[in-house]
Amino acid sequence: MTSDTPARRRARVFSRRRGAPSRARRRLGAAVRMLAALVLAGGVYTAFTPGAFAEDNVQLSAVAREGKALYDTSCISCHGRDGQGVEDRGPSLIGVGSASVEFQVGTGRMPMTRQEAQAEQKPPQFNDAQTEQLGQYIQELGGGPELPDGPLVANLESDPDALARGGELFRVNCTSCHGFGGGGGALSSGKFAPSLSDATAEELYAAMLTGPQNMPVFGDNQLTPEQKKQIITYISVQLQDDKDPGGLFNLGRYGPSTEGMAIFLVGITLLVFTSLWIAGKS
């Protein structure tokens, strides 16, 4: 057996030091691997989500070119070149889709006259053709939700249960803000849910699809296109055709609660005066 001399111990220590990587080298290697992973993830994301960014040299259709001319004269000051947005003026329009443009511009909410808590509905500044051109430009610029083709109201002859199902969906998803009768209601910070009394089927579908103002987005995984059409059918047929859900009288179109309160107050008042009259006579 050979003795463990100091020279041999020093040789073993030197060999271990030379074979094991230093702490600095290990950290540098980890940083390089992390950087490579981030570059790879970013490349995959860019490759599979091209619609999230505006293309500089996108080839526009004839309708979209007309929309770009309107955009450059009426929208660019707030939403910036190619819809990229301007800080403290207007958000980016990349990915909002033609449905959002048709709702906001078609109802006169855009262009806004001034910055306020909520864009209010007013007479639109663009006609239907111009609104479609603006929507097509934004759609081709960055993609996003679009209104479907075909009728947006269910056919009650082929689907007689659509009205009842639409009413149930409306009560579950919409009444907390828009009220039982679609009359609208106040929200926080000066915002409000508008009345649905004069909303068109296209406006209703676009609102559910894009979630304007404080309204949530009802994607197809939450409300299918068929369910959206059923809600629109209920609003169009049951709430907009002079049919008051409260019953006999139209008291704000908020439903039976307002009529019940009115009857209660009137009844109590009559009973009080009748009691006073009887007491005075006796």
Rank of each mutant, 00 (worst) to 15 (best):
Gly247Leu: 11
Asp161Thr: 13
Gly95Tyr: 03
Thr274Cys: 11
Thr210Glu: 04
Leu70Asn: 09
Ser100Glu: 08
Pro123Gln: 04
Gly142Arg: 02
Ala7Lys: 10
His178Glu: 07
Glu259Ala: 13
Asp244Asn: 15
Gln213Glu: 15
Tyr205Trp: 10
Asp88Trp: 08
Gly246His: 07
Ser77Leu: 11
Thr49Met: 06
Ser98Leu: 03
Ala52Ser: 09
Ala99Glu: 11
Ala207Glu: 03
Pro212Phe: 11
Arg171Lys: 08
Ser275Asp: 10
Glu146Trp: 00
Phe218Val: 01
Arg65Ser: 14
Arg10Trp: 08
Cys177Gln: 05
Ser61Ile: 01
Leu187Lys: 03
Ala186Trp: 04
Asp56Ser: 14
Tyr205Ile: 01
Ser189Thr: 03
Thr49Val: 02
Asp56Gln: 14
Ala36Tyr: 07
Pro160Asp: 12
Thr274His: 13
Ala62Tyr: 10
Arg33Val: 07
Pro245Met: 08
Ser197Glu: 12
Arg8Tyr: 14
Ser92Leu: 04
Leu152Gln: 04
Gly190Asn: 09
Ile138Asn: 05
Ser22Leu: 03
Glu203Thr: 05
Pro245Val: 05
Ala7Asp: 13
Asn127Leu: 08
Thr2Ser: 15
Met112His: 06
Ala31Cys: 09
Ala47Ile: 00
Ser257Glu: 12
Val172Ile: 05
Glu168Pro: 00
Thr224Lys: 07
Val266Lys: 02
Pro151Met: 05
Ala30Glu: 03
Leu134Gly: 01
Glu140Val: 00
Leu60Gln: 05
Ser282Ile: 01
Gln115Thr: 13
Arg114Pro: 00
Ala30Lys: 01
Ser61Phe: 04
Ser15Val: 01
